[in-house]
């Protein structure tokens, strides 16, 4: 077993165990804390794929932005004072069936996909390749995403105003 495999196992174990904690913890704040470790673990996995830019983006967007928003949301929720909220869903059978179907889908995809072997550095500078790809090959999706984000921004600004309409 090589050293990089060892570090990989450590990061993967951190990611998965903290992800389990996110789902099963009864305390929403603790779930958010566990999510911090999950997101960092995913960033570490990106580093293993030589995707340094994506890893930094993961930390910046998810830890610095989205996780903070989630904690804000939890804190501003009304009945949070006892901070133990049950996480199990009301219609358990339906939820279980849907979760099982999603699990089958993910399992099928992950078993049939030809995975890219990530232990080889393919690009000298990832940022150059990413910029090239975004502005040439994937220009339309990129612009579509920016439109969606702009719409979300304007929509939230409209909703948060007192007299909307």
């Amino acid at each position: 077993m090589s050293m990089s495999e060892l570090v990989f196992i450590f990061i993967a174990a951190l990611t998965i165990s903290s992800a389990f904690w996110v789902v099963f913890s009864n305390n929403l704040i603790y779930s958010a804390v566990a999510l911090l470790f999950t997101l960092f673990g995913v960033a570490g996995l990106y580093v293993f794929l030589f995707a340094d830019f994506i890893a930094a983006t993961q930390v910046m967007v998810y830890v610095g932005g989205i996780l903070v928003l989630i904690i804000f949301g939890v804190m501003l929720t009304n009945q949070i004072s006892e901070s133990t909220v049950t996480q199990t869903n009301r219609p358990r059978l339906l939820a279980g069936v849907i979760a099982f179907i999603i699990f089958l889908m993910v399992a099928y995809i992950s078993l049939t996909t030809q995975w890219h072997e990530g232990t080889v550095q393919t690009a000298e500078k990832t940022t150059t390749v990413i910029g090239d790809m975004i502005l040439n090959e994937y220009l339309l999706p990129f612009e579509a995403v920016s439109l969606v984000l702009l719409a979300a921004l304007l929509g939230s600004a409209l909703l948060s105003r007192k007299q909307h309409g």
């Binding site: 930390v59 910046m60 903070v68 500078k125």
Partner: peptide, 19 residues
């Protein structure tokens, strides 16, 4: 290669601790 971006990203981690 992404030095500045790394610094900006990592310095945004502290916010979680503050909250």
């Amino acid at each position: 290669d992404i030095g500045i971006f790394f610094i900006l990203a990592m310095s945004s981690v502290g916010v979680v601790g503050i909250i």
